[in-house]
């Protein structure tokens, strides 16, 4: 394995460069996936049948908390990658752990929100609007959940092996994934919640 020391560790081998490009293309596919979910949501957003409408169930407070948690986590993972470039293992691990805790917090609020909806009689089966809402939010939430597992696995490897071309590459790719989830959330916040509250 040839290591090119003029590049950051996550780009230092041929294999690593391929993986970063591959992951960007995967994110392209993810954009197509979420675009489809958004299209489905926009199509069905006003078709709530006998169920509640968006205005009746959305509440700003939990959503703002979720937004705050997730946006902050995107910032902290950026700091984590910066620490990795500087070779600061402890700082990197701390920032990654903060990121994951914030992610967990986001997930907790989202699950509480879902439970509230269901208690108000707004379930996935009630109307097409709610089916599409739960699917869009649920897909994003499932991505966050998977990210928590993945991030933990990477942290364990960094703890054991330190910064190697492999662990650096994995951490960097994970950060791309995490930022992407944040971008999707910004769209959800603006076009699902804010629009729904108007």
């Amino acid at each position: 394995m040839k290591i090119d020391h003029s590049l950051p560790l996550e780009y230092s081998t041929e294999e690593n460069r391929l993986k970063v490009l591959g992951f960007w293309i995967f994110l392209g596919a993810e954009i197509a996936l979420f675009s489809t979910l958004f299209a489905v949501y926009f199509t069905l957003a006003n078709r709530y049948g006998n169920g509640p409408s968006a205005k009746e169930i959305f509440e700003l407070k939990p959503v703002l908390i979720e937004t705050f948690l997730l946006l902050t986590s995107s910032f902290t993972i950026g700091l984590g990658i910066h620490a990795m470039r500087l070779g600061l293992k402890k700082a990197m691990m701390t920032f990654f752990m903060i990121t994951l805790v914030l992610g967990l917090g986001f997930l907790g609020v989202e699950i509480t929100e879902f439970v509230t909806y269901v208690h108000e009689g707004a379930t996935m089966q009630t109307s097409a609007f709610l089916s599409s809402l739960f699917t869009l939010l649920g897909t994003h939430g499932a991505h966050v959940t998977f990210g928590l597992l993945w991030g933990t696995a990477i942290l364990l490897q960094v703890r054991k092996h330190g910064f190697t071309p492999e662990t650096a590459n994995k951490s960097f790719i994970f950060s791309l994934y995490w930022h992407f989830l944040d971008v999707v959330w910004i769209f959800i916040f603006s076009f699902v919640y804010l629009k729904g509250l108007m």
Binding site: A29, A128, F129
Partner: peptide, 26 residues
């Protein structure tokens, strides 16, 4: 990815009772 979503919605409609492609409830 569009097929992925479409098939997932089909599965939800058929197996979890969602209303994406239903004839009622929007």
């Amino acid at each position: 990815p569009v097929l992925t979503v479409a098939l997932a919605l089909m599965m939800f409609d058929r197996q979890f009772g969602t209303q994406f492609f239903a004839m009622q409830n929007g």
